[in-house]
């Protein structure tokens, strides 16, 4: 029995498929192959699959990560080929390897924001440089559901702009302790300045404190 790390991309219309729905779809795709998958041993046995970091609805991703557990003899390359043969359009396994990092070591993620032709990138820069962009999100206080105000730009690991391509590359906190939703960021940017139009958000890399998540 061993864990296998699948690096995958989720592109195009698949960005409208939520994390839970993707999880279910992947389970079914695995069942369509003869990969010797390990089944959980609970009341309702199912193939064991864990995603490194849920992707918000509306975002694409490349270099995304899920782990599966296999039993018996199968090569990584074979797993990748068998899965790619059954995955729907928009979902592709791009690499299959033995995990190095643990999923809980993941602390940040890099996103690529594509802006429309009409957007003035300087407007985006001004907001990002300001370091403050708040959004409301549902949270809990003393066991009650409340709306909490959070600053999306409190912690920026890195940011760069490409004026010709009209894109912004930004690395933000991610993982179980602190997580910034890039779709909220895109929405708040658009709300703050009506001239900004974000065409697409794509998550491009995952990081631990010591470098890329591998």
């Amino acid at each position: 029995m061993r864990d296998v790390r699948l690096v995958f991309s989720k592109l195009g219309l698949l960005r409208f498929v939520s994390h839970l729905d993707l999880n279910r779809a992947v389970l079914r795709c695995i069942r369509r192959t003869d990969i010797p998958i390990w089944y959980t041993e609970g009341f309702n046995p199912h193939p064991y699959v864990t995603f490194a970091l849920p992707l918000p609805l509306g975002a694409e991703s490349v270099n995304d990560v899920m782990d599966i557990r296999v039993v018996g003899d199968i090569k990584n390359r074979e797993i990748m080929e068998k899965l790619n043969a059954v995955l729907p359009e928009g979902l592709r396994i791009t690499d299959c390897r033995n995990p190095v990092n643990k999923i809980r070591e993941l602390t940040s993620a890099e996103y690529l924001f594509f802006f429309s032709e009409a957007t003035d990138l300087a407007d985006v820069k001004t907001i990002i440089d300001g370091g403050a962009l708040t959004t409301e999100k549902p949270g809990k206080s003393h066991g009650r559901k409340v709306m909490k105000t959070v600053n999306l730009l409190e912690e920026i690991h890195a940011v760069s702009f490409d004026d010709a391509a009209k894109t912004m590359t930004i690395r933000l906190p991610a993982g179980s302790t602190k997580n910034v939703n890039p779709i909220s960021l895109a929405e708040e940017l658009e709300k703050t300045n009506g001239g900004i139009e974000c065409a697409l958000v794509r998550r491009t890399n995952l990081y631990t404190d010591n470098g890329k998540f591998i």
């Binding site: 219309l13 409208f16 509306g58 779709i183």
Partner: peptide, 24 residues
């Protein structure tokens, strides 16, 4: 789907029920 409609799709509940592309 029309790209202009696709751009607005996040505004609706269960957008994946309008995109097609499901396995099968």
């Amino acid at each position: 789907m029309d790209k202009r409609l696709e751009k607005q799709l996040l505004k609706v509940q269960k957008p994946a029920s309008y995109t097609g592309g499901e396995p099968g």
